[in-house]
Design a protein around this nucleic acid. Structure first.
Ligand code: MN
Ligand code: MN
Ligand code: ZN
Ligand code: ZN
Lengths: 141, 141
DNA sequence: GTAATATTTGCAAGTAACTTGCGTTTATTA
DNA sequence: TAATAAACGCAAGTTACTTGCAAATATTAC
């Protein structure tokens, strides 16, 4: 019987008609096991030296395009990625000293977007938003 | 009598003991006249060809370090900058088609940060947050 | 105002994070 | 199982930004 991650990752690829290669499946499994967004350098380290950097970037970009992954920028000079497929909307906390990142379940009231929309003259609706909190984590305080 | 921008920009530099060079003053005046964050390419274009790219980046970095400027990333592959000195906290709306950026006066309740902090296990306080709304502007709809 | 000192600037070279081209391999479809 | 389409791996390229260092400019001390 297949593992939880195996079936889920398989489904992510199948849902968009993407080839289910060994590499892509391993990458999605690794991403699915993370608690917060990770960098391409982290992924490359975990996947092992056999992995090619270009292939990784190409897979990540494809997955972002199809909405399987979400991509974030926390001002570290490189992107972070996390599974978006079937994951509820949420925000992030980022430590400005050690770079530690934590998921925060979304506590948005619909008012948050509504009142922003009222204030934004040139916009009639928003499709998404991103909210990041910065500070020092307990280890770095 | 000096203009509004001239005295304000002068004060920004003076407050941090930074040299008030012609270039820096021109840069801050230009930034002070913008309604939303702008890219380094935009600044370079507006300042004219006489300006050196390295000097611009160095000035921008210095100003960000001292809190005179705030730096943002909207996923365009380059940073955006705006005056932070004496400017109240606010958020941004970004058009995913044309890149148009708009300031949104902050409508945060203190609860926004409070409830995020409660949910973030590894953090005792946040020093700042950034909230961006993405969608299509009225021109692009 | 002028000289001494500290800061900033401009140019050339360098770096990090990606991207592109193209021939080979692997997966999907018939 | 063969034909077709997609993904991979390597080398080379691009972009946004950084660093080193000598020359120019600004600040401070007299
Ligand atoms: Mn997350
Ligand atoms: Mn702004
Ligand atoms: Zn930390
Ligand atoms: Zn637009």
């Amino acid at each position: 019987m297949e593992s939880f991650y195996a079936t889920r990752t398989d489904e992510m690829l199948r849902a968009h008609g993407l080839s289910r290669t060994q590499g892509r499946i391993a990458l999605l499994k690794l991403l699915a096991s993370q608690k917060a967004p990770v960098s391409s350098a982290f992924l490359l380290r975990k996947l092992g030296t056999s992995w090619d950097e270009t292939t990784l970037y190409r897979a990540l970009n494809t997955f972002v395009t199809y909405g399987i992954l979400a991509q974030f920028d926390f001002g570290h000079g490189h992107a972070h990625y996390e599974i978006a497929h079937d994951k509820p909307h949420h925000h992030h906390a980022v430590c400005e000293s050690c770079g530690h990142i934590e998921d925060i379940p979304a506590h948005d009231s619909p008012q948050l977007t509504a009142s922003a929309l009222k204030a934004a003259r040139g916009f009639k609706r928003f499709t998404r938003h991103s909210l990041e909190f910065y500070g020092l984590c307990t280890k770095c305080t």
